[in-house]
Computed example of a mutant assay.
Amino acid sequence: MKTAPAPTTPVRVVLVDDHKMFRTGVRAELTEVAPGLLDIVGEAADVDTAIKVIRAELPDVVLLDVHLPGGNGRGGVDVLQGCVAVDSRRGVPVRFLALSVSDAAEDVLAVIRAGSRGYVTKSITGTDLAAAIKRVADGDAVFSPRLAGFVLDAFGVAAGEIAEVDEELDRLSQREREVMRLIARGYQYKEVARELFISVKTVETHVSSVLRKLQLSSRHELTAWAMGRKLI
């Protein structure tokens, strides 16, 4: 007797866009084309609300518009940097998929450098968007067809810079990178511990390890190092 396949757990999604009608349309379209596969658990129309909703709901994927009011005036980049150490309910980092009308180079590269897993334009069909969300939830990178080559070319131009950054970052574990970013942004040890749900002693151990691996002597040097690589 064959065993029935286990039910698929819906991908939990937060939708961030400053146009309510657009959010309503996306929600309706995704519900129609992917019934039971996606669960939109929250919405936000500005940077500050988006960060609060993401931290409260811990979604698998955030559909993120590039241009948003609030924050420090950098739109989606502010949201990405405000959620750098947030894990989804599955215990993996919350993943972001930029969904924007813009295909300008500065917009695409800014959110990719800030940590987005992909970038698609609002001309995408509902079926393709649902598939893109699922792929991002599984850890893939997704781009609209005409942006993929552009992104590869753009990063290829700066290949030397990227290789240099990766070489140093590769010395750090994932948890050390999370601690490093928060410390570099000015968080105190107790705040880092609360943010990452670890002890202050563990934070101290990670900071010491980060400084040793990067051959730095203080958190001030660490901040300068991270700023120089646009990690904060």
Rank of each mutant, 00 (worst) to 15 (best):
T125I: 10
A56R: 15
G73C: 03
E57K: 14
V86K: 11
R74T: 08
R185W: 10
V79G: 06
D65E: 00
G75I: 04
Q188F: 10
L97H: 07
L172E: 13
T127M: 11
A104R: 09
V108K: 07
D140Q: 06
V101R: 13
D65M: 03
R175I: 15
F150L: 15
A159G: 06
F155C: 02
F96P: 13
S88G: 13
A85Y: 01
G76T: 09
D103G: 12
S88P: 01
E164G: 10
V61D: 10
V165M: 02
Y189C: 04
D153G: 01
E106C: 06
A154D: 15
A154Q: 12
L109R: 10
D140F: 05
S123Q: 12
G139I: 03
P69L: 06
V79F: 02
V157N: 12
R185N: 15
A85T: 11
A184H: 07
D87E: 14
R175P: 13
D78S: 08
Y187I: 04
L64G: 08
I124G: 12
G118C: 13
R181N: 07
R89L: 07
G82H: 05
D170A: 15
E176L: 03
Y187W: 09
L152H: 08
S173Q: 02
E57V: 14
I183N: 02
G73K: 02
Q174P: 09
D128Q: 14
A56H: 05
L152Y: 05
I112M: 13
L152M: 07
D103H: 09
A98K: 10
V151H: 07
V94A: 08
R74F: 05
H67C: 07
V120A: 09
A114V: 07
V62S: 09
D60P: 07
Q81I: 10
L182T: 12
E106K: 08
S88L: 09
A114M: 07
T125Q: 10
G156K: 13
A141G: 02
A56E: 15
K122T: 02
G76V: 03
C83S: 04
S123V: 14
D78C: 13
C83N: 03
A158I: 11
D138Q: 05
V61P: 09
R113N: 01
D60I: 08
R135C: 06
V136D: 00
A114P: 04
E168N: 09
V151T: 04
V62Y: 06
G126C: 11
Y189N: 10
A193D: 01
L172S: 14
G71Y: 00
V84A: 03
A85M: 00
F143K: 02
R181V: 09
G156S: 04
E176Q: 13
L129A: 00
G82Q: 11
A104K: 11
P93G: 08
